[in-house]
Design a protein around this nucleic acid. Structure first.
Length: 744
DNA sequence: CCCTTACCTTTTTTT
DNA sequence: AAGGTAAGGG
């Protein structure tokens, strides 16, 4: 197949420039993935050994897709396409000596990491209610991603937080070491350090990976940067692709400087910009561009499209989350009527929990949906329990996993017994499992001793069976541990049991599909530990796609809804304000939120709808919501605001004086107005007084001044109103609810 | 030792 | 709204 004929000029250059550093600044929808896959295929056709090619992506799903598309281009296999994390996990097992790890290490996911932080905090007598483990963990994680040790936290002074964080960081690392475990950040950190400390290791990698491609370069952190540079050192055959406007992971240590400074890192670098967008309509691209142009810290970039403007971008205002959801269900039905399939439609939101109402509504509306939550499966208690057995088998030092299963299923080993065995293990400097085998020394009662010993024997016998195929291992674990017996007898556990059966079938799948250099228990755990949200959703046919804005990156859909476009939600800001709510939502953070909205919008090919609600249930309380400032940022060109909120009136305050005539003065009159607005019979008398210059209050946009009225006859009154922070809006006032304030 | 009940926090976003 | 934790009874 011809690799170049359907590429545009800059794309072709990006594919064909084989040697030397190359930076591809690829705007949203500019065919970046196509360039990368073609490039890999092109390199191979130029006679480069596939084994010398390493392409790094951010998610397993992206890696899978990319590998798949490269194969489809008819090139011989052998190239490595994977994520930074899985690359590092593999390297660490292969070069365990250089990296100073033991090859059977466990990989701790976020939940494990938090448990460990909590455990460390308790041991240090820190109250977890004063200082959240999550915050401490975030601090530690950020430091690790910047390749900084515990002492680094003291750089900016020795306040109480810094000193405790340093202490916890140290002890957390010690705890990881004694469990023979690494967290996600360690995977990168250990490889980066090994490359620094062992030049021969770095050189080996440089020789092995002579051609390096890194996708989403704007989202790389310090550790990933060091690894990439280490590999490229010497040959400099490094092709980085990315888009500064889509940098949305600064909060987890991504450094946008990496992509901005590529040219100074590699003075001989070629820079290619891809600015033609093949995805979105003119209207969508215009709206997204106007939004992102509000960012000040950015390289200006002009995305353009040959596509026509298409339908306006919709902004829909609803009363609450409930009506927002049913409105979307309705719109989905309309889109279906227009000929779209369910899988062509996606709904994005800033926070995971925003999907709940939506799910319920879609369920009752009988609209099939898929939700990008692969980890959810692996986060189920029973699944984590089974995996903990596997981990303990591979890595008997993994006390976190071992204590998790010592009494699952219930074996009558309670917390006192666990504490005693644990204390003995600590004292003797042995693992929990080993201590179980020597239960007689732990000062336990006869019965407890017998149970604990039985557990140790169970694990020993399981450990003898580790070389069997995954499915058999899994079945043995489930049956001989007693999980099967305890779950299948209890009718409340039917779902849990079904999940475990599902897990067994993934193991079977692993046996069938795994390549020859990755098929053991260790590789299975590797794979399972590194799956993410997005990975498990492969655009299922016949279902609407639900996901967070973060998860949407890299995807595209004909129709996109972004829900919850409200202050505090889409530019997200925390309710409690560590550091002051007004001042410290820094410009940097706001701009990242804006990029996030930009990413979401640019996923849409043909139809884009933004929705917001006037009030919403947050943490069990209904709280009033204001429209997102981003709705102001996108301006009014190619935007249609549909106001579906019901009439409402602000309580009168001292400052709000009556319009001439005082028509909304008493409640009887008010309910009359509401009734007529609801029934669509007569215009509420306000409209008589609606004229340019009026000061009005809108429940979502706040105070504004009427600039012009384009058509007056109710209920189709359209008026252009200037709102303070949100700019000019053209509103359809059909069911409206403007409160007039005379402002002589 | 296990199970129930009552509070109490949590909630960004992800490898 | 929901999940986790501490306390208390069986």
């Amino acid at each position: 197949m011809d690799l170049l004929s359907d590429l545009n000029e800059p794309q072709r250059r990006a594919v064909c420039l084989v040697d030397g550093p190359l930076l591809v600044l690829a705007g949203a929808g500019s065919g970046k993935t196509r360039v990368i896959t073609r490039r890999v295929a092109y390199l191979i056709r130029q006679g480069i050994n596939p084994r010398n090619i390493l392409a790094i992506t951010f998610t397993n799903k992206a890696a899978g897709e990319m590998a798949c598309r490269v194969t489809e281009l008819g090139t011989p296999p052998g190239s490595t396409v994977c994520t930074f994390h899985s690359l590092c996990a593999r390297l660490l097992r292969e070069f365990a000596d250089q990296a100073g790890v033991s090859p059977n290490f466990s990989i701790y996911d976020r939940a494990d990491q938090l448990r460990l932080v909590k455990e460390v905090m308790t041991k240090a007598n820190l109250k977890t209610d004063r200082l959240s483990p999550a915050r401490l963990h975030a601090t530690i994680s950020k430091a690790k991603n910047a390749l900084q040790g515990p002492e680094s936290l003291l750089r900016d002074g020795e306040d109480l937080y810094s000193t405790t964080a340093t202490k916890i960081y140290r002890q957390y690392n010690e705890a990881l070491a004694s469990n023979n475990a690494l967290d996600f950040d360690d995977l990168l950190l250990r490889v980066a350090c090994a490359m620094r400390d062992h030049p021969e290791f770095r050189e080996l990698l440089s020789r092995r990976y002579k051609y390096l491609l890194i996708d989403e370069y704007q989202d790389t952190n310090r550790a990933q940067y060091v690894i990439a540079h280490g590999i490229a050192l010497g040959h400099e055959n490094v092709c980085a692709t990315g888009d500064p406007d889509q940098s949305i992971y600064a909060w987890r240590g991504a450094d946008i400087g990496n992509i901005l400074e590529f040219e100074s890192d590699y003075p001989s670098a070629t820079v290619i910009r891809l600015e033609e967008n093949y995805r979105s309509t003119g209207a969508i691209l215009g709206v997204a561009s106007r939004l992102i142009s509000r960012n000040t810290l950015r390289k200006d970039k002009a995305l353009w499209t040959r596509r026509e403007a298409g339908p306006d971008v919709s902004v829909i205002l609803s009363d609450d989350h409930q009506s927002e959801a049913s409105l979307i269900a309705g719109r989905i039905a309309n889109l279906r009527a227009e000929g779209l399939a369910y899988e062509d439609i996606a709904i994005f939101y800033r926070l995971n929990w925003l999907s709940r109402v939506l799910e319920q509504t879609l369920l009752t509306a009988a609209i099939p949906y898929r939700i990008a939550r692969g980890v959810e499966f692996y986060n189920r208690k029973e699944i984590k329990d089974v995996l903990a057995y596997l981990r303990t088998m591979v890595n008997p030092s993994d006390d976190l996993s071992c204590t998790r299963i010592v009494n699952f299923p219930a074996r009558g080993i309670g917390s006192t017994t666990v504490a005693r065995v644990g204390a003995m293990a600590d004292q003797e400097g042995i693992s929990f499992l080993e201590a179980c085998g020597r239960a007689q020394d732990a000062g336990l009662g006869k019965a407890a001793q017998r149970k604990v010993r039985a557990f140790a024997e169970l694990m020993a016998s399981l450990r003898n069976q580790m070389d069997r195929p995954m499915r058999e291992i899994m079945e043995t674990v489930v049956s001989s541990s007693g999980i099967e017996a305890s779950l299948s007898s209890d009718p409340d556990s039917r779902e849990a049991y079904a999940n475990i059966e599902e897990l067994i079938s993934t193991a079977e799948e692993f046996d069938d599909t795994a390549v020859e250099d990755a098929r053991g228990l260790v590789d299975y755990l590797n794979q399972v530990s590194l799956v993410s949200d997005v990975d498990h959703m492969a655009g299922g046919p016949g279902a609407v796609n639900l996901m967070t804005l973060h998860a949407s990156k890299g995807l595209e859909f004909p129709a996109v809804f972004i829900i919850g476009c409200e202050e505090g939600l889409l530019p997200f800001s925390r309710v409690d304000d560590p550091g002051g709510s007004l001042s410290s939502k820094s410009q940097m953070q706001l701009e990242e939120e804006r990029r996030l909205a930009f990413v979401g919008m640019t996923r849409a090919k043909d139809r884009l709808t933004l929705t917001c609600a006037r009030k919403r249930m947050i943490r069990g309380r209904t709280s009033p919501q204001a429209a997102s400032q981003f709705i102001g940022d996108i301006g009014t060109d190619s935007v249609k605001i549909e106001d579906l909120t019901s009439p409402s009136y602000m309580p009168r305050t001292k400052n709000s004086r009556s319009a001439p005539g005082g028509f909304y003065a008493d409640s009887a009159e008010r309910s009359l107005i509401e009734a007529s607005a609801r029934d669509g019979l007569n215009a509420p008398p306000e409209y008589e007084y609606l004229r340019p210059g009026c000061r009005v209050h809108h429940p979502m946009f706040g105070f504004g001044q009427v600039l012009a009225i384009s058509s007056h006859p109710w209920p189709e009154t359209r008026a252009t109103i200037q709102f303070g922070t949100l700019g000019r809006k053209k509103l359809v006032l059909s069911k409206a609810h403007l409160e007039l304030h005379s402002d002589e």
